[in-house]
């Protein structure tokens, strides 16, 4: 069980999140939706303990209080697929993957997600198109076993074939009993799957919590 209790967050003295309460049980897919600038990405990054974000509150995974653990410790349990992963020219993608301890099985996944293999010799995320970045983040989620998966806007910029593949991946993780959080404001992703719970965030506060009937509301935020 993944639980966030009374989370407040600030970036440079500006309050971004206020009294966030959220929980995800094993095998649940939770959708977090809201307009741009409502704090969704800050929430995701705060869970991973981004040093730029000052927080108060508790983040608990099972029995463990992970609120203030160093980022790379938290990364053992929680995977975050970034909305905008930064490009890092001076790390070769292949060196990065090797350091992450990933073996050659990754190549089959490249094909599955239609990622060109030449990215291995490129700088990490350098020169990747928007779609390639999203696919790369999805790819990395499949390479290790985590307890919690957070996908921040994984569908924007993806073609429909990739979106249906993503849906399959989410269902697969759900069946494995993982806790899944999807941040999205496009409901296309949820044609095949129904989120177990929907949280609507506006201006840093949770405005509504409900079941998949709230998906109609999510359409409001579609850009």
């Amino acid at each position: 069980m993944f639980k966030i209790t009374k989370l407040n967050a600030w970036i440079e003295d500006k309050r971004i999140l206020e009294d966030i309460n959220l929980e995800v049980r094993p095998g649940e897919i939770v959708l977090i939706a809201g307009p741009n600038g409502s704090g969704k990405t800050t929430l995701a990054r705060a869970i991973l303990n981004d040093p730029k974000i000052k927080k108060e509150g508790k983040i608990i995974l099972g029995e463990k209080d992970i609120t203030n653990l160093p980022t790379h410790e938290i990364s053992k349990y929680i995977y975050l697929a970034f909305q905008y992963p930064p490009d890092i020219e001076f790390l070769l993608t292949k060196d990065f993957l090797k350091e992450m301890g990933i073996s050659d099985e990754i190549y089959s996944l490249f094909d599955y997600l239609s990622l060109p293999k030449d990215i291995l010799d490129r700088g990490l995320l350098t020169g990747f198109s928007g779609g390639e970045r999203k696919k790369f983040e999805i790819l990395l989620s499949l390479l290790k076993d985590y307890n919690v998966y957070i996908f921040d806007e994984p569908d924007s910029g993806l073609d429909s074939e990739s979106i249906s593949k993503l849906s399959k991946i989410l269902v697969d993780l759900k069946n494995k009993g993982k806790c899944i959080i999807v941040i999205s404001h496009i409901s296309r992703l949820f044609i095949d799957i129904k989120p177990d719970r929907v949280y609507i965030i506006e201006r840093g506060r949770i405005k509504k919590v409900g079941g998949y009937e709230l998906l109609k509301d999510v359409e409001k935020y579609e850009v």
Binding site: R45, L48, D50, P51, K52, P70, T71, H72, I74, S75, K76, L80, F82, P85, P86, I88, F90, L91, L92, D95, F96, E99, M100, L140, K144
Partner: peptide, 26 residues
């Protein structure tokens, strides 16, 4: 490596040492 890049790498499981190692390899 700036804060955003370091946060990204750490969130993917790389330690400070690991990051230095990969950078060195380049």
């Amino acid at each position: 490596l700036d804060e955003d890049q370091l946060f990204y790498l750490k969130s993917k499981g790389m330690s400070d040492d690991g990051i230095k190692k990969v950078l060195e390899r380049y």
